[in-house]
Design a protein around this nucleic acid. Structure first.
Lengths: 137, 137
DNA sequence: TTGCGTGCAAAGGTTTTGCATGGCA
DNA sequence: TGCCATGCAAAACCTTTGCACGCAA
């Protein structure tokens, strides 16, 4: 409810790194004094931000860790789906008319409404596909 | 590599509860003696099963916990997408031709290959939508 | 007999919580 | 001034690991 210095710092940090993903520890080491203070504040704020849609909560490359990326104002993240490459970790913002159609189809025919902010499609991106093919040679 | 009693127990348990999801603790309390023995074995086996595609690894209703559901032989889970209702937790196996088309579209036009076993689409199912509408009245 | 799987206990890591203090409105 | 947010430390959780033993092949 109140606007605090720490909130602004966090928001600022994510907005400045709009295409990058961070673990909680990475955020802490960047925003907090050397001894890693403010841990609980970071956790509390990030939870709120993820819940309100300001941050996207994603699964890290290892399939275990949690990473966060900015998805608030200035992005169009409430409108499109996200693809995440399980190999390199890249996040792709997919503005695709076809997917919009599917969304409507699923909604009408299957009676299921997607929650875009909670959904991430995992798979392999073009670059990593190339790499794989090279490896196979 | 070896087939052990514990492996069979786990497989059996999931196959008998083919439409249910369980946390590790729930599995342990059902399969292990009262004092909760065998914890590490359960973890080790579940990891293997999730990796090999026998189990689907999902996010629980709270958005934090990890739950597992059978997706091995007898299911068609390698072939279709999964929808999970963030409200009631229900998992929907969606055999839908339209989604197959999208899969091909994304693959051809956007050069991204879905990993079906790692992807879960989150949203609200028909039953919960009804409930919501009732609440709104 | 060989060596992987198991079970236990301990360690490791991450996230949450209680409480006194600090800072926004 | 009133009340929420913060910071710290401790607690609570969840998951992994080391090691000796058991059991499948």
């Amino acid at each position: 409810m109140y606007k605090t210095k720490q909130q602004r710092q966090l928001l600022d940090f994510f907005q400045k790194n709009i295409s990058s993903q961070f673990t909680v520890n990475e955020i802490i080491s960047q925003l907090c004094p050397e001894d890693g203070a403010g841990r609980s504040t970071i956790y509390r704020q990030i939870s709120k931000m993820a819940e309100s849609g300001t941050l996207l909560k994603l699964t890290g490359e290892d399939g275990k860790s949690t990473v966060y990326q900015y998805s608030g104002e200035g992005t169009n993240c409430g409108e499109h789906f996200h693809l995440k490459c399980t190999s390199c970790g890249k996040l792709i913002h997919l503005d695709c008319h076809q997917l919009e159609k599917i969304r409507k189809h699923i909604s009408k025919e299957h009676n299921f409404t997607f929650d875009i902010k909670k959904t991430v499609l995992y798979g392999t991106c073009s670059d990593c596909k190339k790499d794989k093919e090279k490896d196979d040679e």
